[in-house]
Write a protein that binds this DNA or RNA. Structure first.
Length: 459
DNA sequence: GCGATCAGGT
DNA sequence: CACACCTGATCGC
């Protein structure tokens, strides 16, 4: 677990996705997407005051993110300080120290991140080199190779550092079904239910504010219906989403929230509380797309105890069960496990709760070859020592099936680019730092290393 | 009274 | 375990 405090070592006068503490002094702000854990400090009175006295400090984000942000009155004061930028359109920004007048120019390019509406990655190019901040991202294999701005001619730009979303920097997440697989599973499960009668209702119990729109539009299209949501304000300028959502509660698919939603559902009512017009009890089914991009457990793939006493959740389609999930853990007493995990965390002094902040690790990159999925890193950089950072040389790579044995001393970029694929493409997310070090050591010692796609082991 | 933090929840 | 939140109690100002 690592976190990102908001600034990059190459360009410490700008802040990304963090707006508190030291970030209050920054010359420019960048918001990758509109999730609360990336907005810490964004509505702070201190920052608001600073803006009122500044003529140069601005917040840069995508047009969609601007819309979503300003749809919340708490952030309305940002209106005059936001500069929305088009995707894949390099823009020069002047970073000005308003006290001294000192100025530094930088070029920023927004790249689509595929995480939620408006989400972007930021590519910065300036005097301290080229760096990429990914924010949260969800790209399919090969997407990166199609991002023109990561390339220069036929080559990949020399990227100094990648500030990589480390949410899935954990081997537990090496199996993540594709977005398409998740969607098809949802379509099938929901279609089977709501086609039974008009009293069959599905509740999409969504947790995040944004990120499910892809699901809504596809469900709406497939079943020729609209999805009930709490309000539409944030989508008012997004007709392609707006046409698939509604505040009319008389629909079979709901993604609304209500303080008593769970209670209503038990009572055969819709999560928003309304009943069938003729009083017939509704047949409710609940789906928790906890984040549909990594799937989750179902009845069939319920958690299995593993020797460590912890649980593994197999990736799969969204959990769907009738009304309640009380029976989800049939036959398994989870309480001792929870206690054990809690004690373990306390013993190791791990916070009980994750702090509200973006997760990112800084990877120093020698060259990034997305067309082959190869990421080389630089030798250790003593200036990087924060928790969770990779402090030793690391190779993130995966051999192609027909490639010959690895001879680390002879490992050239050209050989590598033809022989390897990266195991930590965004689709499968990244392996753990420990694992990378292990892999590197094996390579450095001359051992042959074979990693199978989708696997985290080596040997 | 207000925000930040913490403890609980989904 | 995780995601991305939410509610409510408590603390500091």
């Amino acid at each position: 677990m690592s976190s990102f405090a908001g600034r990059m070592k190459e360009y410490p006068t700008l802040s990304l996705d963090r707006f508190d503490r030291e970030n209050l002094h920054s010359r420019a702000y960048f918001l990758s997407h509109c999730h609360k854990d990336h907005m810490k400090g964004l509505k702070g009175p201190l920052l608001k005051r600073k803006l009122q006295f500044s003529r140069t400090v601005r917040l840069y984000c995508s047009y969609v993110t601007k819309e979503l942000l300003l749809s919340n009155p708490k952030y309305a004061f940002w209106e005059e300080y936001i500069v929305p930028l088009e995707l894949e359109s390099p823009t020069q920004i002047s970073l000005v120290d308003e006290a001294s007048g000192e100025k530094e120019d930088i070029v920023v390019t927004l790249l689509p991140a595929g995480h939620c509406p408006g989400s972007v990655m930021f590519l910065f190019e300036g005097s301290q080199g080229t760096v990429l901040y990914t924010g949260d991202f969800r790209l399919a294999v090969g997407d990166a190779s199609r991002l023109e701005h990561l390339h220069s001619g036929s080559r990949v730009k020399d990227i100094q550092s990648v500030y990589l979303d480390s949410t899935f920097y954990d081997p537990r997440f090496h199996q993540i079904p594709t977005r398409e697989v998740c969607l098809n599973g949802m379509l099938e499960l929901i279609g089977n239910w709501i086609s039974q009668s008009s009293y069959h209702v599905v509740w999409l119990n969504c947790k995040a504010a944004y990120g499910y729109e892809y699901l809504f539009t596809n469900l709406g299209e497939e079943f020729n219906t609209q999805i009930h949501v709490k309000n539409l304000a944030m989508f008012k300028k997004m007709p392609e989403i707006l046409s698939y959502v509604t505040t009319d509660r008389n629909t079979q698919i709901h993604a609304c929230r209500h303080p008593k939603d769970e209670e209503f559902l038990q009572g055969n009512r819709r999560p928003c509380g309304c009943t069938a017009v003729d009083g017939t009890p509704l047949r409710n089914q609940q789906s928790k797309p906890s984040t549909m991009w990594f799937g989750e457990r179902t009845r069939k793939t319920r958690p299995e105890p593993v020797p460590s006493g912890l649980f593994r959740f197999h990736s799969s389609y969204s959990e769907v069960n009738s009304g309640s999930d009380d029976d989800l853990f049939d036959g398994l007493d989870l309480e001792p496990v929870r206690k054990k995990m809690k004690n373990e965390r306390r013993r190791r002094n791990v916070p009980q709760r994750r702090e509200l902040q973006p997760h990112a690790v800084c990877l120093s990159v020698q060259s990034l070859l997305p067309e082959h999925g190869l990421l080389f890193t630089r030798p250790p950089d003593p200036s990087i020592g924060a928790e969770g950072t990779v402090t030793s040389p690391v190779l993130l790579l995966q051999r192609k099936e027909n490639a010959g044995p690895i001879v680390p001393s002879e490992l050239s970029e050209s050989q590598a680019s033809s022989d390897f694929e990266v195991p930590c493409t965004p689709e499968s997310k990244a392996p753990q730092p420990d694992e990378l070090l292990h892999l590197y050591r094996k390579l450095a010692s001359g051992d042959e290393v074979v990693i199978r796609k989708g696997s985290q082991g080596s040997g």
